[in-house]
Amino acid sequence: MQSEEWKFTAKDIAEKPDLFMSGHRACAGCAPATVMRLIMKAIRGPTIVTHATGCMEVVSTIYPYTSWAVPWLHTAFENAAANASGIEAALKIMKKKGKIKHEHVDVIAIAGDGGTYDIGIQALSGAVERGHDFLFVLYDNEAYMNTGIQRSGGTPLGASTTTSPAGTVIPGKLEPKKPIADIMVAHEIPYVATASPYYWRDLITKVRKGLEVEGPAFLHVFAPCPRGWRSDPAKSIELSRLAVETCVFPLWEAVNGEYQLSTPSKVLALAPQKKKPVKEYVAVQGRFRHLLTPKFEKMLEEIQRITDMRWQKLLKKCGIA
């Protein structure tokens, strides 16, 4: 790993031109749009970006406009990783045959939770098994927001969505989030990490690391959606901090399968008293509103239990018992 966090200072970042440009049609308070901008701050040279269908694709490339200052491709929903496979294979062989001049071109595939956890997982699993040299970025806003807040495999336990609505009997989604980043680690790829836009320097550094490794890299980015989460559009970045502080979304890296906590989460591991209760995170989001009623308080307890259980498992993997 050549990249160090100190390389990306606020000054460096501010001076670097935006490759994800303003003028897109994302909603007020959209964290995914901020995530796109941060990702593109980590670019190290010629880069091609490919997107799955989803919010960020839809808001940024309305013909004849574009927010992308790099070559950019969208083909369909379930195949961002297959796009990347084709582009990477083409660049490699054309370089070998002298048909293109760039020594190296980085390839980044970007998808939301639907395009990663659900409909996109087959293409993703296949592409990383084949060892293509690309970075896959999952921006996780925890439901199908583009189509109007339907539940996905990335929707957390207890969240109310339009297809897992909190009713009088059922307290929102009954299943916890699929541990997607761990599934990617199980593919034995060289780099997997999680990131949150509040910790922007950590995020940018991880993007850069993902680009620098040879072979597939996977970055899972937490990305609050005020429309879908029924949260204050002014608080998206605060929410992305709270998710880390409650251990709902811990930050870590797995380099060649070796887990290690990133600083914001390591602090909590070393000083467990700083770990905030999940209720603080849940209370500021309308999608969990029903969990604060006495009827469904058991579900809130269950969310805390699963969060703690997953955190303990992660600590074990990181060698902190």
């Binding site: 491709l73 297959a82 084709g86 582009i87 294979a89 083409a90 048909k99 087959q122 293409a123 699993s125």
Partner: peptide
Amino acid sequence: TESEHSALTACLAASLAGA
């Protein structure tokens, strides 16, 4: 590839990359 869907996708993307 792991499916025909990805096979054609990869060809499509490679083709647009100039191959």
